[in-house]
């Protein structure tokens, strides 16, 4: 039994190495609409799924999309479970110490504060507030750095959960990507609203690859440049994000 398992694993490892150029395994969270999520048909969908397929079509690779929890998405890339992360991940110096990023496929997306309608937040002397964020995000780092004194930072495993707890009154304010919050506020029927000024953190959203995969990085960058030039990237952005302006074409 064990020998058979080892042999099977060895075979799988060898075949995957031999086809490394043909298959692009894309790691995504699948819980971050409209970037990547499981739709009502039970399939992965969203901006990054469409973009990954466009990249594969352009480079002639076969896309295989792997769902992975946000918390372990970088370690599992480094371990080799997939080849590129496309999960609404902002390019930051901290992450660049561990992995490389392609050029961005979504420009800097300002973070926004969201509250239940009518909540006042005094950002200059915030104290005693419960601030919700998704763990291991740029917003989590920002809040820890700026508001950890005198406030409680509540970290959630998924974005959806942070909003559910805001709506239920378990946290007072949530800081998250504006692009994900827009549809939330729009569809809340006035129950949730933005407050305060936008926060500019992070450096655009890009695909994360292992440091040693320089060839793959070059291939993806080249493909992204081409897809930006022919308008594919902006068309997909317009399709998935209401009211965003074209960023990569004139």
């Amino acid at each position: 039994m064990k020998k058979a398992l080892i042999a099977a694993a060895a075979l799988a490892a060898l075949t995957s190495a031999a086809h490394a150029q043909d298959t692009l395994r894309v790691g995504t969270e699948g819980a971050y609409a409209p970037w990547n999520f499981v739709n009502d048909s039970g399939e992965l969908a969203g901006y990054e799924i469409d973009l990954a397929n466009a990249l594969c079509e352009h480079t002639g690779m076969t896309c295989e999309i792997v769902q992975n929890d946000w918390d372990s998405i970088i370690p599992n890339l480094v371990a080799g479970n997939y080849d590129v992360i496309m999960a609404g991940m902002s390019i930051t110096d901290e992450r660049l110490e561990t992995i490389n990023f392609t050029q961005d496929y979504f420009p800097v997306d300002p973070s926004k504060y969201i509250v239940t309608a009518g909540t006042e937040v005094d950002f200059d002397n915030m104290s005693g507030m419960r601030i919700g964020v998704q763990g291991n995000t740029i917003q989590a780092a920002f809040v820890e750095e700026n508001f950890a004194d005198g406030n409680t930072v509540v970290s959630f495993a998924t974005f959806d959960q942070s909003i559910a707890d805001l709506a239920a009154g378990n946290v007072d304010v949530v800081l998250a990507d504006g692009s994900s919050l827009e549809p939330v506020v729009e569809n809340s029927g006035g129950a949730l609203e933005f407050v305060g000024e936008d926060v500019a953190v992070g450096g655009g959203v890009g695909g994360g690859v292992r440091k040693e995969d320089t060839e793959l990085l070059a291939t993806l960058d080249e493909a992204l440049t081409a897809l930006k030039a022919d308008g594919t990237v902006d068309a997909l952005r317009a399709e998935w994000f209401d009211g965003v302006e074209a960023a990569y074409t004139e």
């Binding site: 819980a31 609409a33 409209p34 999520f37 739709n39 009502d40 969908a45 969203g46 998924t158 959806d160 959960q161 909003i163 559910a164 709506a167 239920a168 549809p183 939330v184 569809n187 809340s188 998935w240």
Partner: peptide, 15 residues
């Protein structure tokens, strides 16, 4: 069961 706020992702509902 987790809440959905995006019509593109299916029925909009709470927790």
């Amino acid at each position: 069961g987790s809440p959905n706020f995006l019509p593109q992702a299916g029925l909009v509902h709470g927790d």
